[in-house]
Computed example of a mutant assay.
Amino acid sequence: MAALNNEELPTIYNLASSDPRSELIDRSTVGEDALQQIERIMAEMGRLRSVERKISRASQHYMNLNETDMRAIRFLISAKNTGDIVTPSALAKHLRVTTASMTKMIDKLESAGHVERTAHATDRRSLCLAVTEDTHMAAREQVGRHHASRFSAAARLTAAEREVVIRFLSETAQDMESSVNSVGEIPTPKA
C-alpha cells in the first residue's frame, strides 16, 4: 500500500480537528508544509501500529494465546536462538508478573504444547523453560515473517536516512516516556 501523500488524513492525525485550539501542541512556529509532513508521519506511525496489532491478533488467534503468552513465547524463542537458559523466575521478571501468575501461565502453555520444562543442568532445584519446536516454527511462520519485512524497508534507506529514522524513533520514545512519567500512570478503563 502506498504511503499517504495528498490523501485525506484520518481525523485522529489531523491536528486542526484533534487539537483545534493548540492546547496540546503549540503549532505557531511550524509552517504549513512542515505541519502537513508531521501529520503524515503521525498517520504512518498510526498505520504501522494498526498493522502490527492486526498481525499480533492474527498470531494470537492462530496459536490460541493472549498477548502476555505471546511475549513469553517470543522471549523463549530469543533465548533458544542465543543459547540462553530461561528459568520461570527469569521469565516472570521479563514479563513483570508474579511467580504465582507465572506458574499458572507455564502450566497453561505446557498443557497446550507450547513450552516444555526440563531440569536445570547445574541447579537441581531449578527448572528451565524452552519453547517447543512446533511452537517455534508456528511463531516463525506467523509472526517472524511479518516482522522480518521491516528489514527490507530499512535496507532501502541510505545510511544517512537510517540515522534520521533511528534518531526520530529514539527521541519519540524518550519524549513519550517523559510524558507518561510527568503525567503519571495512565489509568486503565474499567470493564
Rank of each mutant, 00 (worst) to 15 (best):
M102E: 03
P10L: 04
A79S: 14
S50N: 13
I106T: 10
P88N: 04
T99W: 03
V131H: 02
D175P: 01
L9W: 09
F151S: 10
T29R: 14
A119G: 13
G184C: 00
I73N: 02
P187F: 00
A2G: 15
S18E: 07
I166R: 11
N64Q: 09
V183E: 12
E110L: 03
D26I: 00
K54P: 04
R21S: 14
N14C: 14
N14G: 04
Q60Y: 00
D123Q: 14
D107N: 15
E116R: 09
I12N: 03
E23M: 08
A155K: 12
C128I: 02
A148K: 12
L48T: 12
N66F: 02
E185T: 06
I25P: 01
S178M: 08
I38D: 07
D123T: 06
R53N: 14
Q36Y: 07
A3W: 09
M176I: 08
L4R: 11
G113V: 10
A153V: 09
N81Q: 12
Y62K: 12
N14Q: 12
T68C: 01
G113P: 06
I38R: 11
S149K: 15
S28T: 04
Q36V: 08
L48F: 14
S111T: 10
S50K: 10
N81G: 09
T132R: 05
S170T: 13
K80F: 12
A119W: 01
I166K: 13
M63W: 04
P189H: 06
R47S: 12
E39G: 05
D107M: 05
D107P: 00
A92R: 01
V165K: 05
H147R: 13
E23P: 00
Q60A: 03
E141C: 07
R57E: 12
E163H: 02
E110H: 07
D123C: 06
A92D: 01
D33A: 11
V97D: 03
I166A: 13
T68D: 05
S179G: 00
E171T: 12
A3P: 00
M1I: 13
T98Q: 01
L35W: 01
R57L: 08
R162F: 02
K104S: 04
P187L: 03
V183R: 15
A34K: 13
T82E: 09
V183A: 15
D33E: 15
Q60V: 06
K80A: 08
E7M: 08
L65V: 15
G184D: 00
L24G: 08
L95E: 04
R124C: 07
E133H: 13
A34E: 14
L129I: 07
P20V: 00
Q37A: 10
M105E: 00
V86G: 07
D175I: 07
E39R: 05
R117D: 08
R167A: 13
S152C: 10
M1T: 13
S170W: 09
R21I: 03
I55V: 15
Q142K: 09
S152W: 10
Q174G: 05
Q142I: 07
E67Y: 01
D69R: 07
I25E: 01
H146E: 15
R156I: 07
T98N: 03
V165F: 10
E185H: 02
T82I: 05
N14Y: 09
S78N: 09
V51T: 12
E7Q: 15
E52T: 05
A155D: 11
L157F: 00
R21E: 15
A2V: 13
